[in-house]
Measured scan of single mutants.
Amino acid sequence: MEVRTIKVFTTVDNINLHTQVVDMSMTYGQQFGPTYLDGADVTKIKPHNSHEGKTFYVLPNDDTLRVEAFEYYHTTDPSFLGRYMSALNHTKKWKYPQVNGLTSIKWADNNCYLATALLTLQQIELKFNPPALQDAYYRARAGEAANFCALILAYCNKTVGELGDVRETMSYLFQHANLDSCKRVLNVVCKTCGQQQTTLKGVEAVMYMGTLSYEQFKKGVQIPCTCGKQATKYLVQQESPFVMMSAPPAQYELKHGTFTCASEYTGNYQCGHYKHITSKETLYCIDGALLTKSSEYKGPITDVFYKENSYTTTIK
């Protein structure tokens, strides 16, 4: 009895394709271990004539594949690729409408935090270190965002349907971005203890939790000093293409032309909904596939993004 075979390709990165001759009487799992086709788990399936010449994702289970996976995804987590594939199996079914010149995501599976993050990423200057993220990001900007969303979920250790947080998501993504040249110098002034300067680099240099107003941050924000008295913390120097200011959701007025974009969060910790506000020729609110415009805006804002380049204080 002759062994019926077909020729397929296996890959971990969709760049390096490895030619395989597979036995049609055995499952993919018996031949390769966990195997995925377009995100779908085909591990328990036997090869079919229609699979001839198709590319299958496999887990990096030998040295060659491990090197290829690390170079593309910059992670050695053995569960990463499987999590990416199972997320992709959902995100490829989502709709990605162009809204006001940006790629958004039609609401499904509690994905409003991903839509808000995706919209924000198209408006701030950011370059990702893992080629996987950078490639998928370019495709997302062009309207094909399924891979990018699935990668975000995998890097953030999230599953489809789980509630997510924009600030946490951005923080994970910033860790995989090139923020080497970003720098922030802060000064804390206390009447009792004097003053202390701190220099922050990388992710810490672009994120701040405690106030939404970048102007206020430049002037000074009140913080408790270690001595128990009130101290003032203010920005001395900022070198970065953008800054992200966050605070627990509270009524906040966004003035046209003073910011790049913002995240609105309605609801409580267990259950809520994100919308995205962007400042173009007027203010726009993007909620999944829905767009509304207004000249002014007041609502429960939790993150505001500002364009920056270089700032030095005039406070002496």
Rank of each mutant, 00 (worst) to 15 (best):
T76K: 10
Q216V: 08
L102W: 06
V99E: 13
C285E: 14
K46S: 12
G29C: 10
S295H: 07
I15Q: 11
P130N: 04
A177T: 07
T312S: 11
F148L: 13
C182S: 09
Y252R: 06
L179P: 00
Y36N: 01
V8D: 07
S246C: 06
K255D: 06
A142G: 13
T199P: 04
G39W: 06
Y73S: 04
G164A: 02
V304P: 00
G202S: 02
K54Y: 14
L153I: 06
D165M: 11
C190R: 05
H48T: 14
L88R: 04
F32C: 10
F56K: 03
S246G: 10
G101M: 00
L126D: 04
C261E: 05
T313S: 14
L133Y: 05
S104T: 14
T211S: 09
E281R: 05
A289E: 15
F217E: 00
E204I: 01
C271V: 09
Q222T: 10
L37S: 12
Q20I: 10
I124V: 04
K280L: 13
C193R: 04
D23I: 14
C182Q: 09
A250L: 06
T11V: 01
L118I: 07
C112P: 07
K92F: 05
A40G: 13
G33F: 02
A177L: 06
G39M: 08
Y137I: 05
G143Y: 05
V221T: 07
V42M: 12
Y297C: 07
F174W: 07
L118V: 06
Q270L: 14
I105W: 00
E204N: 11
T5N: 12
T211M: 08
H90A: 11
K44L: 13
L254K: 03
Y214V: 10
T282M: 11
G272F: 00
L200Q: 14
Q251N: 11
G82H: 14
G267A: 13
K298Q: 08
Q222N: 10
G82V: 15
G143N: 04
T211N: 08
P241K: 08
C225P: 00
Y172I: 15
Y214I: 10
S104I: 12
T76G: 13
T232K: 08
Y214E: 10
Y311T: 11
T27Q: 12
S279A: 10
Y138N: 12
R167Q: 10
V22N: 04
S79T: 12
E2C: 04
T198W: 10
W94K: 02
V12R: 06
M209F: 15
S86E: 14
V243F: 02
R4F: 03
V42P: 00
K92T: 11
K280N: 12
L59I: 14
L212D: 04
D38F: 08
Q251M: 15
T103L: 03
N100D: 10
W107L: 05
I45W: 14
Q230R: 11
A145E: 03
Q30M: 10
L133G: 05
V166C: 01
F32E: 00
T91S: 05
T199C: 10
K233D: 01
N187F: 06
F242K: 00
T292Q: 09
G257S: 06
E281S: 09
Q238R: 01
E215S: 06
V243R: 02
R4Y: 14
T278C: 11
T116V: 15
G82W: 12
E215Q: 08
E71C: 09
E308Y: 00
Q175H: 09
S181G: 13
R4D: 13
Q122S: 03
K229C: 05
G164S: 05
G164V: 03
V236A: 09
L119F: 00
P131H: 03
N187M: 14
A247V: 01
E215F: 08
H176A: 05
V236I: 11
G288M: 13
S240P: 04
R83H: 01
V12H: 05
N14G: 15
I105A: 07
Q238L: 02
E68S: 08
P34V: 15
P97K: 10
S246A: 00
D135P: 05
A115Y: 00
D62G: 10
K316P: 15
K229A: 14
L133C: 15
V166S: 02
V243C: 03
N111G: 06
T43C: 09
A250D: 14
L65K: 07
E264C: 00
L102P: 00
Y137A: 08
I6D: 07
I124E: 02
A146V: 04
M244V: 09
H176S: 03
I45L: 13
I15F: 15
N111Y: 02
A247Q: 05
K307M: 10
R66C: 10
E52S: 13
A40E: 14
Q230G: 06
L81T: 08
T120Y: 05
H256Y: 10
F305V: 13
R167D: 02
P60H: 08
H51K: 01
R4T: 13
L151Q: 08
R167L: 01
M170C: 04
Q270R: 07
K219C: 07
T27L: 10
A247R: 09
T199N: 04
F174M: 07
Q251E: 11
Q195A: 13
E204W: 03
E281F: 01
H176R: 10
F9G: 05
I286N: 00
E2Q: 12
P224V: 14
G210C: 00
K106L: 09
Y57N: 08
Y265D: 00
S181C: 12
Y265S: 05
G272E: 02
N147C: 09
R167K: 14
E71P: 08
H48S: 13
T260M: 14
S246F: 04
E296K: 10
T64I: 12
P248A: 13
K158W: 01
F259L: 00
Q122P: 04
V203S: 09
V160R: 00
M170Q: 03
I124P: 03
V3D: 14
S240F: 00
A140V: 13
